[in-house]
Design a protein around this nucleic acid. Structure first.
Lengths: 134, 134
DNA sequence: TTGGTTGCAAAACGTTTGCATGTGC
DNA sequence: GCACATGCAAACGTTTTGCAACCAA
């Protein structure tokens, strides 16, 4: 995370705090979650600051944005080196990270066959987690 | 597509028209796209009818709803028997269906290892399509 | 000084809902 | 007749934007 190297960015307390909030979150979180946590540190912070920071952070690949099915909110998480996929429980909405990414070979094959220049992917598994399927 | 077997549904011109619109669409489309097409047939149709129809259709597994990255709109497509995944161009937003689904074995393994009851998945590949990567 | 950053309020956007009316069966 | 379907307008929740003030470099 080279926080001081963001294109067209100055140092910002709010943005740094947002990164810390994301860093201490285990699962992807919503903008509103970040906003509430940020208000604990800076009671006058505004939701627009959250969105504007997240936009810069995603543009700089520090943060990953995703939108899960049947929800209209975006989820944000720190773009850690370890590539992650999630299992999402359709009952309790828990997001459980999976260990491995099985798609690297697949991507290579598809690139070859189609001429697409694949730069990333998203895989989500849906179903019921062990506690919800009881 | 057993259109006459929808749970708690009567025959409806609008809903049938929506199915036809989805059927003639090659790619997943937005609710607004459907609304505009529907207005060509029924100029007084309303957007709420579109959403209400789509809700019933997804509940009955006639239609699949998905939300793609960096967009806040849902995309709808007819749930054809053939299981599909898409390559999505980050430049022109084109969605190109992929031929095979490579995840069936993977699901089995994860189910075994984690105890999750996996009922579905979503896989999207991102990058530049052949014309945009020129 | 320059240009990114912030807070506030308002707007925009996709989607949902309440209600009264219409329609299939 | 009953329950679903519809159009309209209003509401909703999330995200974006305009603007003036602020602050980092």
């Amino acid at each position: 995370m080279d926080l001081n190297n963001l294109k067209g960015c100055r140092n910002s307390k709010n943005r740094n705090a947002i990164i810390e909030i994301l860093d201490s979150a285990i699962e992807p979180v919503t903008a509103d979650y970040i906003y509430k946590k940020l208000r604990e540190l800076n009671p006058t912070a505004s939701i627009s600051t959250v969105y504007r920071s997240l936009e810069k952070l995603t543009a700089n690949n520090i943060v990953t944005k995703s939108i899960i099915m049947d929800s209209n909110k975006a989820m944000y998480e720190l773009n850690r080196k370890t590539h992650k996929h999630y299992f999402i429980c359709t009952n309790c909405n828990k997001m459980v990270p999976l260990e491995n990414c099985p798609l690297e070979e697949l991507e290579k094959n598809i690139s070859k066959n189609t001429g697409f220049n694949i730069t990333g992917h998203k895989l989500e598994l849906y179903g019921k987690c062990s506690s919800c399927s009881k």
